[in-house]
Computed example of a mutant assay.
Amino acid sequence: MKRRTKIIAVAAAFLIIAGATGSAVASGEGADGVSAARTVQREAAALTGTAKLYRPAGDDITFSFDAHLAEQDRQDPMKATGTFRFSHYKGDWGGYAKVKVDCLATGGKVAVVSGVVVETDVKEFRKARVGVTVHDDAAGDRLGYTWMTADPQKDKVPPCVSGAPFEKVEEGTGDFEVTPWEFVYPTE
């Protein structure tokens, strides 16, 4: 009888502890008593993903994005962080660039990101600011960029400026994700 009472007491204690822990988790409180909402960083805007551009001649053109605007910087898209990369190769010709993000603005499923090239093997892009526009569309992602109309060596591209998304993404390669930015308008 004593053994049965101990088993019931241990089981009851376990259920009470499990219930208390479940209540804390459900209320957004972690085991350490800190609110889970405070530990999760919500983003005001983001652009992530990789895709290849469609080129019938067989060019290998790839863009990858990892750009973010933190919630506390919601009102200032020029506080965006992250990088993006692009490369263009065909046969033994080509090059790449890595860009440090300096601005990110999104609206719906469209994102404009800009930054300064921090690594490249193409002299025209060294230390140039470039911009890219992405349209995250279920019917087929699209992309545009500043160097279609601006010379990276002599034209100064302002932050968060790019061309219309005129390029088609190769079918099956686009996995862009745009987190829409919502500007908070002053009420006074």
Results as ranks from 00 to 15, higher is better:
96 Y>Q: 02
154 K>P: 00
18 A>K: 11
104 L>P: 04
100 K>F: 05
185 Y>P: 07
124 E>W: 09
56 P>N: 07
2 K>E: 12
18 A>H: 12
154 K>D: 01
3 R>M: 06
134 V>N: 04
169 V>A: 09
73 D>V: 01
100 K>R: 14
48 T>D: 03
79 K>G: 00
174 G>N: 05
38 R>K: 15
113 V>H: 04
40 V>T: 14
41 Q>Y: 04
53 L>Y: 07
120 T>C: 04
134 V>M: 07
86 F>Q: 02
179 T>Y: 02
120 T>Q: 13
151 D>T: 12
6 K>V: 11
85 R>V: 04
77 P>D: 03
123 K>I: 10
184 V>H: 13
118 V>L: 02
156 K>H: 10
35 S>P: 10
179 T>F: 03
148 M>L: 09
177 E>A: 13
12 A>W: 08
78 M>Y: 09
159 P>N: 02
160 C>W: 07
84 F>T: 00
49 G>D: 01
41 Q>S: 06
140 G>F: 05
30 G>S: 13
17 I>F: 07
3 R>E: 14
51 A>P: 13
109 K>P: 11
86 F>E: 00
162 S>W: 05
182 E>R: 13
122 V>M: 12
180 P>N: 05
161 V>H: 14
17 I>H: 05
160 C>H: 15
133 T>A: 05
99 V>P: 02
163 G>I: 00
3 R>P: 01
58 G>D: 09
113 V>P: 06
55 R>H: 14
169 V>K: 03
174 G>K: 08
146 T>C: 05
142 R>G: 00
99 V>K: 07
80 A>K: 13
120 T>G: 10
75 Q>V: 05
122 V>S: 09
135 H>I: 07
63 F>N: 06
187 T>S: 10
51 A>N: 08
83 T>R: 15
141 D>G: 15
